[in-house]
Nucleic acid binder design. Structure first.
Length: 446
RNA sequence: GCGGCCAUCGUCUAGGGGUCAGGACACCGCCCUUUCACGGCGGUAACACGGGUUCAAAUCCCGUUGGCCGUACCA
């Protein structure tokens, strides 16, 4: 038995949990559950400007709803600043980092110039080339500076990647990486907050993460991180970069605000629309992974049992709304009826349809009437509304078209007479006389 | 621009030297059904292109093209 598996999901609380993040969390969770490992939740909130408590709460809530329970954490990076400070000092002492004094504006100008000259916008190390007396003076006079990581002048950095790169290693040319920044601007007295590529490595190493499973948008960051692991003398974990989830062939992100209310990107909005956790997990698992043997529908237990990193797909996947909807409908139809009744209730209430005084049995019967047509839990509220309240308004066009016709009024009266005379009043008993009447009047039976 | 990754039906994918290239969603048709839906049956539809290697390439190699991601004092 080798080292126990430890994985983590590390969202930044700058918005709700979106379906892409949920899939990353799911694959980490599955890998932990499959291997009796540990699933850790870590909140990456070093960007104080953008992080909010509301986002943290919503992330927790969405993960709990999906059933992605964590074994350790949540850790908050904002509460671990002393740890990062300690490791930063190690990097300073070992000369792996150096202070850089350029302002944001200067850097923007340098980048613009590089672009205009069609050069790579790579930091030119001007602060590294400052005389040490000048560096000393600037620091002591309180000039704000950032810490930059000194990337080796030549050579290559290999990322031990299990998926991308054909199970080989992704190789980056060091001079292409550039000396990246690992803290925000600060002074000796007032140090700047540490940045992602630094804290991520410190935490993953200190938390004994064995497998880093994250989105492929982090692939190029990983080269920087490998360099940091080496500089800090940490053991490098294995990396698995998941193909991205695309929406209309573009990376799906929470920044594409939920333009269409029917197809939101946030997990909680999907839940509120009446998507089930079961179908959400099932559908998400199929985005970049496949169940062996043509299976498309499976339980979470089967998923845990079957999950392997080997069956992960390398190419990006478009989010297929139709398939998600279909699977949601399938789960609704195949769910035990008492369970469905319980799940539909909140959606009726949300629509102001009171089930007070109605038994679950009665609710079960009316739900059964529409269950094959409903693909979202919220569809039941639309479909069953007429059981709960009288029509609020009637389409005037419809009134004119049907009720304005004297023959129609006559027909309706005939229908009413037949129904009133029925004994007992049952569905089976009403069909024959109504058909007879329709035929006599030369009408379709529709 | 530079760097990295990727490339099978419209979409999600299976298949990794010899398959009629399989499944699912969507779409179309038929059946079931008073309608719709569900269900059943059937159908349209794919190996990006060009070179190699090989008796044999969707599968291996190289190139091209295309797509995506990154190129922050965000994560």
């Amino acid at each position: 038995m080798t080292k126990p598996i430890r994985v983590r999901f590390a969202p930044s609380p700058t918005g709700f949990l979106h379906v892409g993040g949920a899939r990353t969390a799911l694959f980490n969770w599955l890998w932990a559950r499959k291997n009796k490992g540990t699933f850790i939740l870590r909140i990456e909130d070093t960007d104080v400007e953008r992080s909010t408590d509301a986002s943290v709460d919503q992330i927790f809530e969405s993960m709990k709803w999906l059933g992605l329970d964590w074994d350790e954490g949540p850790y908050f990076q904002s509460q671990r600043l002393d740890i990062y400070r300690e490791h930063l000092q190690r990097l300073i002492d070992s000369k792996h980092v150096y202070p850089a004094f350029e302002t944001k504006e200067e850097l923007d100008a340098m980048r613009a110039l590089a672009e205009a000259e069609k050069r790579n916008p790579i930091y030119d190390r001007r602060s590294l080339n400052l005389p040490s007396a000048e560096v000393q003076r600037l620091m002591e006079t309180g000039t704000p500076f950032v810490w930059r990581f000194r990337v080796p002048d030549d050579g290559y950095t290999d990322v031990p990647e299990t998926l991308m790169g054909g199970n080989a290693e992704c190789r980056f040319h060091n001079p292409d990486i550039g000396d990246f920044v690992i803290t925000r601007p600060g002074t000796l007295a007032n140090p700047g907050m540490p940045l992602y590529n630094f804290v991520c490595v410190v935490d993953d190493a200190l938390m004994d993460i064995t497998h880093v499973i994250r989105g492929a948008d982090h692939l190029s960051n990983t080269a920087k991180q490998v360099l940091m692991y080496q500089a800090l003398g940490f053991e490098i974990p294995s990396f698995t970069h998941l193909p991205l989830i695309l929406k209309n062939n573009k990376k799906m992100s929470k920044r594409d605000a939920d333009a269409d209310p029917r197809t939101p990107v946030s997990v909680s909005a999907r839940r509120d629309l009446g998507y089930l956790r079961e179908s959400t997990l099932n559908f998400l698992a199929l985005l970049g992974w496949s169940f062996p043997g043509d299976r498309e529908l499976f339980t979470v237990e089967e998923l845990i049992e079957t999950f392997t990193l080997e069956r992960l797909v390398k190419s990006n996947a478009n989010f297929d709304e139709d398939k998600y909807l279909f699977q949601n409908g399938w789960y609704i139809r195949n769910m035990p009826r008492p369970e469905i009744v319980a799940r539909v209730k909140p959606f009726l209430a949300a629509r102001g349809l009171s089930a007070d005084g109605r038994s679950d049995e009665w609710l079960g019967k009316v739900i059964e009437l529409e269950i094959e047509r409903c693909r979202l839990l919220s569809d039941f509220a639309d479909a069953l509304e007429y059981f709960f309240k009288a029509p609020g308004s009637i389409d005037p066009k419809g009134v004119k078209k049907f009720l304005g016709d004297p023959a129609m009024a006559d027909t309706l009266n005939a229908v009413a007479d037949i129904l009133a005379g029925l004994e007992p009043f049952a569905k089976d008993a009403m069909e024959a006389p109504l058909r007879e009447m329709a035929e006599a009047r030369g009408l379709g039976f529709g």
